[in-house]
């Protein structure tokens, strides 16, 4: 299979929709074929593919992301790892190629219950700051663009706002986490 890399240069929700659509059409059949062979349902395939897509997308934005296999093959590799994890099957029931063995799933991909609770509280305490911080940390835009997107007059005022928001989030976490021993060590 020829290795084709989808270059993700300026991700934003709009261009992401096109990227996701292309990846779905190209890669979902392969993953669905695997899930079907393992005895899974279409719903299993959809669940696993969604997570695989998020993981692949995140990885593809890392500055040093280089792979010699195609997006389809990479997504299938991630899906196999997710399948093994989900059904706690011995790895030998799902043979992995050398390239697939190199693929890793982020350790923090599945949020634990405490984190889910915290996330929920953060969302309830105000979406605006969270949206601002998401743009800063994940949309890979220049400071100028960020200031423009968020409607600030200058880079500087946008930066001040970012740290104010981060402070707010940090302090919400602190207030909600008191009593969690792991923070006190």
């Amino acid at each position: 299979m020829e290795a084709t890399v989808i270059h993700i240069e300026r991700p934003g929700a709009a261009s992401r929709e096109a990227i996701f659509l292309e990846l779905y059409e190209r890669a979902f059949p392969l993953t669905a074929g695997f899930v079907s062979k393992m005895g899974g349902t279409l719903e299993d395939a959809k669940d696993i593919f969604q997570d695989a897509l998020v993981i692949y997308y995140e990885k593809s934005l890392e500055p040093l992301f280089i792979t010699r296999i195609s997006a389809e093959a990479y997504l299938l590799g991630i899906a196999k790892h997710l399948w093994i994890r989900k059904f706690k099957q011995h790895a030998n029931k799902v043979p992995l190629t050398a390239a697939e063995n190199q693929i890793s799933i982020p350790d923090d991909f599945y949020a634990n219950v405490d984190d889910q609770k915290l996330l929920h509280l953060l969302e309830k305490s105000g979406k605006k700051c969270l949206d601002i911080l998401k743009v800063f940390y994940f949309d890979n835009l220049s400071m100028k663009k960020i200031a423009k997107v968020l409607g600030y007059a200058s880079d500087r005022s946008a930066t001040v706002q970012k740290f104010k928001c981060l402070e707010k989030v940090r302090d919400t976490i602190r207030d909600k986490s008191l009593g969690y021993e792991d923070f006190l060590t």
Binding site: D108, D115, E123, L130, Y137, F138, I173
Partner: peptide, 13 residues
Amino acid sequence: FQQKAYALLRLLY
């Protein structure tokens, strides 16, 4: 807590 904030923002993203 700031580290935790980054981790949670990633989950949110």
